[in-house]
């Protein structure tokens, strides 16, 4: 899922300081799962905005709403139901959701309530970690399912940098060296010999270095 966290409140309050009617819009997708921008968090944020505005001597009406997702046109269109009730939307979706609202609603002000941090998972309640960087050219079949792009601090492709100590990354002893993990795992799977083959030079154009990426599935598009 996409993992995100709430921005500092002062930053959000500054974005909306001139607004008099705000719609805090939750997303029931990824950010609900990572407890950053679901209905519960939107309710909290709406309350904090009301308190913050009041403390700053401003009067402001803050309502809450939520969409199934904010990254699909059909759901974003449902914002019509609040038409006239806001002069700005504070979206608690990831950056994709905020962009979608901006794309589809040319005359609506939309502000991000979250910092979108990474694609990750939660192995332990309340803790999320990055697992994939969306590079567009997945190599997990070569690395036993562990991602060197997202999980190696240097995104190395041919083994560790040489700075790891006791299986820990040189950037931080709390971070596991993913290349050590790959090596150990490939050993357990009896596939270590595959690692002797040098990885080809990567074409990073699929990783966003060639501008915004787009995907078209002809079998799904209907004009």
């Amino acid at each position: 899922m996409i993992v995100a966290e709430r921005k500092p409140l002062a930053e959000i309050l500054d974005m909306v300081k001139d607004c008099t009617k705000i719609l805090v819009l939750a997303c029931r997708g990824c950010v609900t799962v990572c407890s950053a921008g679901g209905e519960r968090e939107a309710e909290i944020l709406a309350s904090l905005i009301r308190l913050g505005m009041k403390k700053n001597g401003r009067s402001c009406e803050v309502i809450e709403g939520s969409l199934v997702r904010q990254c699909d046109r059909e759901y974003v269109d449902a914002i019509d139901q609040w038409q006239g009730q806001y002069d700005a939307i504070v979206s608690t979706a990831c950056g994709v959701g905020v962009n979608f609202i901006a794309n589809l609603r040319p005359s609506d002000n939309v502000f991000p309530a979250l910092n979108t941090t990474f694609f990750g998972g939660s192995a332990e309640q309340g803790i999320w970690s990055e697992q994939c960087a969306g590079c567009g050219d997945c190599v997990l079949h070569l690395t036993g399912g562990l991602c060197p792009v997202a999980r190696c601090a240097k995104s190395l492709m041919n083994g560790p940098c040489g700075g790891s100590v006791d299986g820990r990354c040189e950037i931080d002893p709390d971070v596991e060296c993913v290349w050590q993990m790959i090596y150990d795992r490939m050993g357990r799977l009896d596939r270590q010999q595959e690692m002797a083959k040098p990885a080809p030079i990567r074409d990073w154009s699929t990783a966003g270095h060639g501008g915004p990426r787009k995907q078209v599935r002809e079998d799904l598009t209907v004009s």
Partner: peptide, 10 residues
Amino acid sequence: EISTMLKAFE
């Protein structure tokens, strides 16, 4: 809930 405590302040 956190929101209940905030509501009390509101």
